[in-house]
Structures are given as structure tokens and as C-alpha cells.
Design a protein around this nucleic acid. Sequence first.
DNA 1: CTGAAAGCGCTAACAT
DNA 2: ATGTTAGCGCTTTCAG
Lengths: 337, 337
Amino acid sequence: MDRKIATIQDVAKAAGVSTATVSRTLSKPSVVAAATREAVLNAVAETGYRVNTTASNLRRQRTGSVIVLLPNIANPFFSQILAGLASVLTPAQYGMLIADTQSGPDPDQLLAHYLTSGQADGLVLLDGSLSPDALEHPGRPPVVMACEWMGRDLPSVRVENGRGAAMAVGHFAQLGHRAIGHVTGPRGNVLTEERLRGFREAMVSVGLPLREDWILEGDFSMDSGAAAARVWLAMKDRPTALFFSSDEMAVGFLGAVQRAGIHVPRELSIVGFDNIEIVQHLSPALTTIRQPRTQIGIRAAELLLDMIETGTRTGPSDVIEIEFIRRDSAGPPPVSR
Amino acid sequence: MDRKIATIQDVAKAAGVSTATVSRTLSKPSVVAAATREAVLNAVAETGYRVNTTASNLRRQRTGSVIVLLPNIANPFFSQILAGLASVLTPAQYGMLIADTQSGPDPDQLLAHYLTSGQADGLVLLDGSLSPDALEHPGRPPVVMACEWMGRDLPSVRVENGRGAAMAVGHFAQLGHRAIGHVTGPRGNVLTEERLRGFREAMVSVGLPLREDWILEGDFSMDSGAAAARVWLAMKDRPTALFFSSDEMAVGFLGAVQRAGIHVPRELSIVGFDNIEIVQHLSPALTTIRQPRTQIGIRAAELLLDMIETGTRTGPSDVIEIEFIRRDSAGPPPVSR
DNA sequence: CTGAAAGCGCTAACAT
DNA sequence: ATGTTAGCGCTTTCAG
């Protein structure tokens, strides 16, 4: 057996053709004669030849990989988007490199780094807190934002965050709630701001009072949800319904108030955002807004590949539909007030 | 400004030195004279030069990336291991390619593919169901298993799964439980088998009866936990304590029995495995066995890098300590029986 | 339809 | 300490 890996030369020799023919057979089989093709394929099988991707990439002036920038790999929310991305990138022969913006000191600097490093044929941005200014690099590779995005006219795949917030408020209002609060994500994040804007507008449009002291700031994490619970428990005048900018925060909140003896939804109604897998398994199952995350990943990858292949720096954006999922964590407000 | 990306040639020209000197300055600065070094670094800054990784890799006969094979990207359990891997791979200038073994038809074939494709300098295997036979490839790159592993003498980073199960049983026994059951992962998976073995041995060693009808098969997912709940609820003669081979199953189970009006831990005690982030936020907070997943990822990456750099195909294995985390989901058995 | 040949951009001997 | 040079393995004109 061969001790070392076969190169295209070995195959050419074995098949009695030139390396060019081997290369053609493998990339554009239609242009070589059937007989030649067969001989080459036999030689490939014999030698166990595999194209050296690195050499191929160098020659073709590409890298064969896409970099995904996300705030936190360990966050389950993103894993599903990754799964969607991978499901189109892998078949298209692109590697998916993952970079965690939280791991280093400055996320924007990391973005700038990858934009100029030439290490990828394209980028997917999942971090809503990245600054659009970082994109000012001549000759940068195509970028798709899988997220809402402020300012820049950048191809993106997003979800109607504001409308999601309005759905939650509408649901509460319909159940009879008048005292509705909101736990936000970190300020400055696009998702946070969009959902907050949607919340405010919806409150106004259903004619409910907007109490700033009922708007609590979190950071999308379960811990921050639990912290919000402590704040809520300590309030003299509590809202009877709370809309959370993420399911994770709702989960952290729910556990904390339950341990304090509060019954959801009898004493308090809550609605989350995302529909992460776990929330249907809670008791009570969480009412939430579903974001089709796999779908978001798939679309983002498709958009990016299209830009890469057509060599364009701009492209269409896409809006993925969200869905209100009614479960058991929101009910009528308590009667005694 | 430069329209296209600068190459090492451009830098050499700008600095008035040879390309070799530029290359040296960037990789082994100590061997070039201080003055030259400065001139080169200035030229680099001026031209905005970045090494072309592809060319560098081709020349150095490496790929600069590591492939991680896991059963399911979307599973939050793995994301934290990935974070650990990334935290050592990224600084070491290795890209991390992720491949989902569930996405294709045959996981073992996928492994074989990556073993021979020459697309990576090394592999990390996170899928306990992969067959060791697939590793029989001459000239394959180094592989580290971040998981228990049967048969083959392969470097691995693992956890004492059997001991974890024993800890759970010991805790139940100490609380006074005599009727203890177990919900397993998918049969055939190494983790499942190790934990099951540990469970059986511990039951025998504490002198408790081992009832096969109290051993339920799951697949590590929340859904399978919920399914186990239905089985448990339908039992005439129920165990008073249940050890789950994963937290996810415990979560699915907990929600389902709570909705059926069962109080945990008053009527039933449960212990999970993994200590995924959410379980501390549940009500009751879940008692479980902590696996330091980030740590596992870090060690696996270190081991692999070491093998890659020393060019060896074997290496040491490592066992990471687990920890019993007592929370509120396990208590004394109900008195009335 | 096939072959010859010129590099892609870089690094590592080998010289000097 | 620095320069010269020979490729790494592949793809792609350009000829034939």
C-alpha cells in the first residue's frame, strides 16, 4: 500500500494522462472523453487520491471557509443557527470557522481582524452589538448579518422583533392585563432596542400606561432573569404581566419567583422570546414568540454563498416569519389588586 | 490606497529586503537584525500586509485546522465543550471546523471521510457512538476522544461516568430510598453504558434490589425524559427515586410530572447528570453530577495540539474530576408506601 | 479533447 | 544576518 498520500501527479501517471486532465475529470467531468474519464476515476480509486484542498484553494484564490462571529458559543440559542448554517455550508464544501466575540477584549476589533485577514471567503455576523463602522474596509469579503442591524445597508436575515413584542403586549392586553412590564436585553444591542421599541409602541397603541420603572434591564441570560425576579419581588406596586426579551431570562425569572412561592400564571403572567427547546418542558410551559433559528441559519448561509459566488458585496435581505406560541405561562390577571 | 491585498513580495520591495527576511521577521523575529526588523515591520504596516494562510499552510504541509465531530451541534451540551476547544485552538492559530454526524446518513462513514480527506491536522471526537474500527486508516491524523471510549487505545479526555452514577445512588440510599430507578441514554452509547454499569454496581454494593423494569431507556433528550415521565406515572409500583443519565432528560421528566401534579422532591426524588446551566434555575433546582465541560474541551485541545506538534499518533489520556452537586430535587422518600 | 506550462503566496534549505 | 531558489499541489489559460 502507499505509504504517503497520493498527489494529482500520481493519478496522472497511473492513468497515463496529464495532471490537467485529472483535474478536469474531477471538477468538470463533462469536458473529458468518457474513456479518459473512466481511466482517471480508476486511477483515483487505485491510489486513494483526495484533492489537496489547501493547494486547490491557493490556486483558486479562495479559502473555502466562512467565519461565523457570535457573542458566545456556549449559548444554546446560537447552536441552532449554527446547525442551519452548517447544513448549507458543508454540502457546498465550505468549512465553518467559529469565532467567539466575547473571548477577546474588543469584539469590533475582532471583526476588523477577520475582515482583513483574508482567512475567509465570507462572514456571518450573529452579534447584534457589533458596530457597523467596523465594516469600512475596502476589499473586504461579503458579510451577512443574521440579526437585526442598525444603520448600514447590509444583507441580513432577520425577524420582526418589534412585531414580536407587540404580539406579547396584545396577548396580555386581551387577557385583561393593564399593568405590563418588560425585561430587556443589554442596552445598545439591536435586538434589545427593537423589542423595546415594539413594546413601547404597542403599549401606546393599546392605550396602556407605560411605566418606566416596570422596564427592567437584563442581558439575555438566565442569571439576569433571576436578578429581575428579585427586583420584581421587592416592588410595592408590581406589574401583573411581564414580557421578556429572551426565553433564557424568562426561565431564570420563573424559577426564582416559583421558589419564592409565586404561582405563574395565577399571580403573574409571563411571555418570553425565542422558543428555545426547553421552554415547552417547563411547568408551566412558557408562552413565547418562536424564532425559526435553523431557518435563519439556512437563509443567511444561502445569501452569503450567493454573494461569494457572484462576487458581489451587497445582496437582498430576508425577513423570516415569527410565530406567537400560546402555552400556559400567561393567563388573566389576579382579581385582587 | 492599495486596491488589492499586499503579498510578501510587496513588503519585501517596500522594505528593501528579500521575501525570506520578511517571512523570518514575522515568524522568528529573533533571528533578524533589529534594524531590519523595524524596516520590515514598518513596511508591513504601510502595506497592510497579512500572511496568506492558505499559501503558508500549503508550503508547511499542514491545514491549520482541526475538525470536531459531534452528534448534534444544536445540543447545548456540546456548545460548552466547543467553547473550551476554541479557547485553546484559536490562540494557537488553528481553525475549528465543525461536522455534525447526525446530518448525514452514516456517522462512521463521515469519520472515515475526515480521517482520509487531509482537510485537518487533527480530529476531536465528541460522539460516543462512533465505532473505533473507523480509525483503521494508515497515515491518519491524530485523534482525541473527548468522551469515554471503548476498545481502542486512543488518547481521550473523559470523566468517571460510573462513579457519577454511584454518587447518585449513594445519595439516594443515604436519604433512605430503597426503590431506585434509572433513565438511561441510548443503548450502545459509551456514556449510557458506563453510567448504567455504575448504577448497577452501586445498587448491588449498597445492597438494594435491582429492578429491571425500573430501568427506562431514553436518548438524552428532553422529549425522552417527558416520555419516561409518562411511563413512570403509569406504573403501579413506582420507584421513589430516579437517576437520569442526562440533565436534559431530567428536565423533560420534571416538567411532565409537575404538570401531572406530582411534587418533587416530596413524592419523588430525581438526580441528573451534567449540570447544564439551566438546572440551577429550575424549581426545584436540580441535584446533579457536574461535568466540567469547558475543562474537557480545553484538555482535549491541548492533548491534540501536542500530538500534532510532536507528530505522534498516540498520547496520554486524561480524566477530569466530576462533582456531586446537591440541590433540591432529591429528598427523603415519602413515608406512606 | 488533451497536454504543457505558468504560477497562486509562502517558507525552508542552502548559500553567501 | 540575509538573499536565492526550489518547490508545496493544484488549476487554468493557451496551444495543439
